[in-house]
Nucleic acid binder design. Structure first.
Lengths: 240, 240
DNA sequence: GAGAGAACTTACCTGGAGGTAAATTACCTA
DNA sequence: TAGGTAATTTACCTCCAGGTAAGTTCTCTC
């Protein structure tokens, strides 16, 4: 017992498996705490390993982040793209003749948002925090990770822009800032729903999708009463 | 020139004024970067002062955060409460007889959300990032700051819960999880709008409020077509 | 059963952030 | 014009995260 027994040496876990574990733990850590606040020692502790191993397998913190981001971003963009395509193929399965829809822009069907949400929830199941990797803002500005994240965001933006622009056009609005804001709101809504979902781990992707449909219906019941065209001026003017 | 001239000594700025400057800079830093990622040296640099001064005036990082949070939280809660009261006093100024509203819960009027948004934008003007101080999640768990932030959130929650619960009740839903989710979505929507607003500094609070009214109208035009009661099952089933 | 290579750690260095004690300078007043 | 006080800095400490070099142990094969 003169020499304190060193804990070094392999533990029988092959590299590929370890990398998966590390990626999973890091994705959760990055997604929940954000890039800046996430710490490699914490990730290592989750896996039951030393931070040195992370560096040997993935390089610097940025590189590990990129390794987490890539599969998630690819998956999400692909899945959203597919959902949008599906929505366009089957334009509003039930009740296509709504009240005020001049049908100016056929590409984005009415049911698409819910299809997209469902696709996102399904793709995210098991790694729900992963969504936030794409929308991380505290990445080192000149890093490859930041560039890739921006690319993914741009891709999602383009997909969403079609839908939101179509909506505005159908409603008779043309303000590009409105379009940008609506796009932003839509993506923020997704993030909010995912965040709620994380706080309710027992909810299945399907249950979430159904819940969203219900909430959409409630919003629909609310909206007509409150905001019709320029009624807004009336309501808002009341406060001086 | 043997002794390098020390830059110490007063600069003629009275303490009260300095404290205001520090509070403003810290609020912006905390709000935009988050508690964990925000750094005191960065705040000090903004003000043109040393971090030591921050410590002498406000104590530790947590204390400085609390000093930033308190006025903002008080203001926001008060302003939101007032807007809700105003909305309840004048239930839907124009068009009170909407389509499907059984008028079961009179407290929350239809125009209230926009009134609340307008109040928030107005209160936030000049310190837009301040909103996020209340919703910061990376605060040290056992700190006074975390406790106060949680209290503010709870207060806003209670105010919003009335409205969202009323909406769900009016729509015939009773699921408490739905209510919680809708509440969460509403507060997330506010955060998203504020974030968009920050990226567009030229937009006045009034312009934002009007924009929100327009977007609500668009959402209203969308929603009926996509989510009517249990049409959801149809739309969602399409993907398998 | 002895290398060889894969899996892993200990020990170390660096930098930056939080935080404190003591000194330094400018302003105000008697 | 001297001294007290307010405003501010310099110098320092500690801790922790990122990152690297070199070693240590296991396992697999010939």
């Amino acid at each position: 017992m003169a020499t304190p027994p060193s804990r070094a040496g392999t533990k029988g876990v092959p590299r590929a498996r370890r990398e998966e574990q590390i990626l999973a733990a890091a994705t959760e850590e990055f997604g929940s705490r954000g890039y800046a606040a996430a710490s490699l020692p914490a990730v290592a502790a989750r896996v039951g390993v030393t931070k040195t191993l992370l560096h040997q397998y993935f390089g610097a913190k940025q590189d590990l982040y990129l390794a987490c981001l890539t599969p998630v971003g690819d998956r999400l963009v692909a899945v959203i793209r597919a959902a949008v395509a599906e929505g366009a193929a089957a334009p509003s399965a039930a009740g296509p003749s709504a009240a005020a829809s001049p049908a100016a822009a056929p590409p984005a069907a009415a049911g698409t948002p819910l299809l997209v949400l469902r696709a996102i929830f399904t793709a995210l199941e098991g790694r729900r925090e992963a969504w936030f990797l794409v929308y991380e803002t505290s990445l080192p500005p000149d890093s490859e990770a930041a560039r890739r994240a921006a690319e993914y965001r741009a891709a999602v933006n383009r997909l969403a822009a079609d839908g939101t622009a179509g909506l505005l056009a159908a409603a008779g609005h043309e303000d590009p800032l409105d379009a940008d804001a609506l796009n932003h709101v839509w993506q923020g809504l997704v993030a909010t729903l995912v965040r709620w979902w994380i706080k309710h781990p027992d909810q299945s992707p399907d249950a979430m999708a159904r819940r969203c449909a219900r909430l959409f219906a409630v919003a629909a019941a609310l909206a007509p009463a409150t905001a019709q065209g320029d009624v807004s001026g009336n309501l808002l003017g009341g406060a001086g």
